[in-house]
């Protein structure tokens, strides 16, 4: 899948979970930059991403997520 499509899908997940779209999608984007994306909402976002791409993360994958770029590459490695 193309990086752009992946990012669009992630954007959609973020928008529906956090109920806003005040963020700009780029590789260096981190959870800290996005309002309301904290450790509690993180799990919901992760679950929705798993559903959207029909993949399963491991806990170790999660620990390696540093920013949007790494999220996209982890997803790419799974689909």
């Amino acid at each position: 899948m193309e990086t752009l499509t992946i990012k669009e899908t992630i954007s959609g997940v973020l928008e529906s979970t956090l109920e806003h779209n005040n963020f700009e999608m780029h590789d260096e984007l981190t959870a800290k930059d996005v309002d309301g994306w904290d450790s509690l909402s993180h799990m919901m976002i992760i679950t929705k991403i798993e559903e959207a791409f029909n993949i399963k993360f491991k806990l170790r994958d999660l620990n390696k997520l540093k920013n949007m770029g790494s999220l996209v590459s982890v997803i790419q490695s799974k689909i």
Binding site: M43, M44, I46, L62
Partner: peptide, 21 residues
């Protein structure tokens, strides 16, 4: 507690959504 208890736990219970949380 967040990093070493809550995160692994909520990760393993993520299928149950809000109840898992």
């Amino acid at each position: 507690m967040m990093d070493y208890v809550f995160t692994p736990l909520s990760f393993s219970l993520r299928r149950y959504q809000k109840n898992g949380l």
